[in-house]
Nucleic acid binder design. Structure first.
Lengths: 147, 147
DNA sequence: TTATATTAGTTGATATATCAAACATTGATG
DNA sequence: CATCAATGTTTGATATATCAACTAATATAA
């Protein structure tokens, strides 16, 4: 955004910009929002799981999960049932037809990702990954100090 | 999120996670949303400018800008006036009191950023910056292909 | 075993981002 | 000059994230 800021600020800004770009463009290509795709992706990987576990993995609000799943259930993409051993928890999984549909999105996302990183070597990917991890750790620390 | 995906996918996921973390934590600390802060930051840097220019810099929707500014005007943080030479465009700037308030946020953000990058050398910052730029370019190319 | 606390999920209120449609103003063209 | 296109802003409809309050079920503890 600004050109008169510190180098660091610009890096952070670039990070946010790339992220926004990813969300916008991928969503535009597939018609599915990132968070919804994350939900579906997680269910695809894990199979049946509790809403709670799903929410923690995907890291969005409880309420948001409930509403996503409600819609996805209406469209027969996921199915839900109570855990017979603990009626507080509800298990979620992809339906058969949901599973098929998601496969297509996953392929599309894989292509998207390949394109995004097409000129990155293995080492570079690793490097980026490690830097992001460090950022994450540093930022977590900030929150702890102030909370 | 998932552990069975490609390395690249995980990097992308990490990027999104860091970004979300930044937004959540910074917003939590200051009580101001990122996009609103971006708007204010831009006005702080640039002084008076048209809504259009502001919108392009900050990269959020026209409608969103209008609504943000409406609120900020009500709270006497910004002031608006028509461009006398072209009544389609409205100029925006920080009010005096707005300018003072924003200064505090900017300091807070600067501290936040310093913490986030505290163990990054100059070279590392540059490296990260360049990688993000490459990602950005690659992703832009994807959209062009499909649109 | 009854009262209390915890946990999982839902719902309502609110905030904000997006798109599309509308509007006003200006510019360009016949 | 009259029309039509382009530009900047606004508004309405919709989507989705968040928080807080609530319900239901379970676990804990007096």
């Amino acid at each position: 955004m600004s050109h008169s800021c510190s180098e660091k600020a610009n890096v952070l800004y670039a990070l946010q910009e790339v992220n926004k770009q990813i969300n916008q463009k991928f969503e535009h290509c597939t018609g599915v929002s990132q968070s919804r795709l994350d939900i579906l992706h997680q269910l695809y990987e894990t199979g049946e799981m509790s809403q709670k576990a799903l929410q923690q993995q995907v890291n969005i609000d409880n309420a948001a999960i409930t509403r996503h799943l409600k819609q996805l259930e209406e469209r027969d993409v996921v199915s839900r049932r109570k855990n017979p051993d603990d009626n507080r928890v509800t298990f979620v999984k992809l339906t058969k037809s949901g599973h098929e549909k998601i496969g297509a999105f996953r392929n599309e996302k894989a292509r998207f990702i390949d394109e995004a990183f097409k000129d990155f070597s293995e080492e570079e990917q690793l490097l980026l990954s490690k830097m992001l991890e460090r950022l994450k750790v540093n930022i977590s620390a900030i929150e702890r100090e102030r909370s």
